[in-house]
Every structure is written in C-alpha cells, then in structure tokens.
C-alpha cells in the first residue's frame, strides 16, 4: 500500500474543507473495510485520507418525521442492535444481521457501504424497498436524493467530488405494510449474496395491492428496483400464481454478472425464484 497523509476530522465541515483542498487526491474513510482492501491492492492510491471516525455528528440513529434517520457513520452492528431500528422495522435488523460477519459489521458503516456501491451488498435492497433517501452534504449545503437513483454504476454513485453522504432517511411506514429481506447463499453463510431481494407490500381492505416495492441485490451493476414487477402487481388483488407471473418479469429487469456465485443466466432465474418467494411470503402473512 502507498502511504498517505491521514487527516482525522471532528466534523463534516472539516472533512469538506479537506476535500476542497485536495480534490481528487483525497479520499474519505469511514469504517475503512473496503477502502483498505482497495488501497492494499493498489487500486486506489490517494495522497490524503480524510478519516471521519471522530466526526460524531455523522453518527447515530434518530427519529425523523415519523420515520427514522441513520447517520452515515453508524456501523452495521449499531443498526442491527438499535431498538429504534427494531421498532421502526424489524426487517431492517434482519437484513443488517446478514451482512458478512460481526467483525465486519463492527467496523463497516452504512454510509461507507452505500457510497462504495457494490451491488452485492445487503443494505441497498431493503433500503430501496423501504423508500430510503440519502442526504448528501457539500460546502454549499445539503441535497436529498432518493436511494432509487443514487447508484449510477459499479462503485459509482451520484455523490460528486467535494460532497459526502451524511445520512440515510427512511420515511414513516404506513400501517399494514410488511417487508422482508431474502438472501440466497448457496455457498457459505458469510458469502456475498448470489441474489438478494428486499420487498415491501401493503394490501388494502379489499385485498388489493396498495403498495409494493421489490428491490434486488447482485442482480445488476447496481442494486435495482424491479419496477415492472411492481407495476404488474400494483392495484391487483394478489394471488400466488399472479405473483409468480409478475416475478417472471424480473428476468428482463436484471443484468447480472457472471461470477463464482453464479452465472448471469442462473442469477436471472434466481431473481425470478426469490422475487416470487419474497412476495409470496408477504402475501401469506410473513414478513415484518
């Protein structure tokens, strides 16, 4: 690894000053798990690393207009163990419990995770299913971006040079909405998902689908929403076969990578299977 200057900052403002000063030569570090690996491999060689660990204002979980706000530096483990989060949505806890191992969850942060933009990560699908937004901060202010639209490409997000991701906001969950997160791990339990699905569903009094979200991980260069599946179900009186039929549509929405976790062809089929299973479980009264 190339050596670099490390700047420990106490606030977001300090970090933004350093980013402005060093431009492309600076890189933010939150938990460091991914960045360390990329630097160790020589893929990223910043001259300056801006360490956010002591920027306490970027840490913590709180209420936000009926929903919840998770600040960027909150570790996965803190999310998983937070009673706030559990009260807000137990599925979120379950999804975070599936990330890698406790050691990684103790170090890695939600903000770092999202900015790293690896499509195989666990948080994005469930956060997409819950309509999360992210708050991006820069020297000129803040902007709020829906998570759906945040990911651009492999390892690429809408966060521009001179900006940092400050927090994740999740809106209030309308009563009666159920959600689930399924992670398909045909190799080992500590692996990245071969395919994962975050889904949310709310049925009206007449049994029709009032609200549906389906998001997938490991299914494309970025985490994605399965809009065709959603559209096929929205407003319908749902049945198992109808869900299976809608799940077929996901094949055209995914664009998976061929890798050791499965060929693109296989992942496309698994996207169908797990989309169907996730939605069926919600229809059958599963989920939280």
């Amino acid at each position: 690894m190339r050596t670099f200057d490390y700047h420990a900052v106490g606030s977001a403002a300090e970090a933004l000053d350093l980013l402005a000063q060093y431009g492309e030569d600076a890189h933010l570090m939150a938990g460091g798990t991914s960045l360390m690996l990329m630097m160790e491999q020589g893929l990223i060689q910043p001259g300056h690393v801006v360490g956010l660990r002591s920027a306490n204002e970027l840490r913590g979980i709180g209420a936000s207009s009926g929903g919840i706000e998770i600040r960027a530096l909150t570790t996965h483990r803190e999310v998983e163990r937070s009673s706030h989060v559990r009260d807000y949505c137990p599925t979120l806890v379950e999804a975070f419990e599936r990330i890698a191992t406790i050691r990684i969850r103790n170090q890695a942060t939600i903000g770092g995770n999202l900015v790293h933009a690896d499509p195989a990560q666990d948080p994005p699908p469930i956060l997409l299913a819950l309509d999360a937004e992210v708050v991006i901060q820069s020297k000129i202010g803040e902007r709020t971006v829906p998570l759906d639209g945040f990911f651009r490409d492999y390892f690429e997000t809408v966060v521009e040079e001179g900006e940092l991701l400050a927090s994740v906001r999740l809106p209030a969950i309308v009563a009666g909405t159920k959600s689930t997160y399924v992670k398909f791990l045909p190799r080992t339990e500590d692996d990245y998902a071969t395919l994962s699905v975050g889904a949310a569903l709310r049925l009206g009094a007449d049994g029709s689908c009032e609200h549906v979200r389906v998001a997938l991980g490991s299914a494309a260069p970025t985490p994605i929403r399965a809009r065709k599946v959603e559209a096929a179900l929205q407003g319908q009186r749902l049945t198992g076969p109808m869900i299976d039929e809608a799940a077929e549509l996901v094949r055209d929405e995914v664009d998976p990578l061929d890798d050791v976790r499965g060929s693109a062809k296989y992942k496309r089929e698994m996207a169908r299977v797990w989309t169907g299973r996730a939605l069926r479980s919600l229809l059958d009264g599963g989920g939280k």
């Binding site: 190799r187 080992t188 339990e189 500590d190 692996d191 990245y192 050791v260």
Partner: peptide, 11 residues
C-alpha cells in the same frame, strides 16, 4: 478467501 469459499461454522 472471499471468492474461494471455505465452509464456516454456520454451514
């Protein structure tokens, strides 16, 4: 060992 997977406790 992230790509070449060995069984874990849970497997």
């Amino acid at each position: 060992l992230g790509e070449y997977k060995l069984p874990t406790q849970m497997d």
